[in-house]
Amino acid sequence: MSAGEPEPEQGPEPGTVRPGGRTARVRAAVLQAAGDVLAEQGFAHLDLGDVARRAQVGRTTVYRRWGTVTALVADLLQDMAEQSLPRTETGSLLGDLRANARLVQRTLTDARQGPLFKAVIAAATWDARTAEALHRFYDTRVAEWAPCVRQAADRGEVPEDTDAHEVIRAVSAPLYYRLLTSDVPLDRAAADRAAEAAAAAARAGAYVRHHKRT
């Protein structure tokens, strides 16, 4: 924080209090602006003053509510998790996992969301608070989709003690790997292959929890 900028007030963790009315509109505008900067320029160029200017709100308002760039990113990720589409229920494990994989693929190839996630993931490798916020984002999304695996277990498609969260992570993992490590297009075919591989492994018992003997 440079000289002359207002000191942030201590208050609730950003995102833990749901604002209404004008406060909600300000929050939405600021989060939109923050996401735009991340997508366009990356984490290193995210500045609270610039975000305030883009959002057309007072700098003092932004510093008072969020205080730091990492707090703003944490709130942005929480909002994104809450605004993400709910899981799709198709009646089969493969259908559900394919819907999940295609949603991840569309998000990561979106002109705005793709660069935004790359920027946040890069920042999470060196900033602990951003990493914590990113973990919360994925915990929320995995928890949203995990019931489809438990439903599959109820139908007898996978072993009863299958770790639902690990199956959902297995769907997304190859898509993020391709996004971050290659210039090969992340297309729907890649999403479908990821879903098929995760479904096959789950049916084979690869994600069954191994309980320790006492």
Rank of each mutant, 00 (worst) to 15 (best):
P8I: 06
G15T: 11
D79N: 13
A199N: 10
L77E: 09
G11L: 08
D163L: 00
R27C: 08
R112Q: 14
A202C: 11
T90P: 12
D110K: 02
D161S: 07
V37H: 01
A71D: 15
S84T: 13
L77H: 03
Y138C: 04
A173S: 14
L31Y: 08
A153R: 10
H211D: 14
A71G: 13
P14G: 09
A195P: 07
V73Q: 03
P12C: 09
W66P: 14
R87S: 12
G4C: 08
T61V: 13
T162Y: 02
D139T: 13
D47Y: 00
A34D: 12
Y207Q: 04
A143Q: 13
W126K: 10
A101D: 03
R25M: 10
R53Q: 12
T109H: 01
V208R: 08
L93M: 09
V208L: 03
G35L: 06
A189S: 13
H45P: 05
L93I: 10
T60V: 11
T109F: 01
V37M: 02
D36M: 05
D192H: 01
G58S: 15
R106T: 07
L31R: 10
A122E: 15
K212R: 14
Q113H: 10
A194Q: 06
W126Y: 10
N100Y: 14
A170H: 02
S92G: 15
A101C: 09
R155K: 05
P185H: 02
R209E: 14
P147M: 08
R64W: 04
D163S: 06
Y138P: 03
V158H: 06
K212S: 14
A101L: 04
V167Q: 04
V37Y: 01
Y207A: 06
R18I: 02
L134M: 14
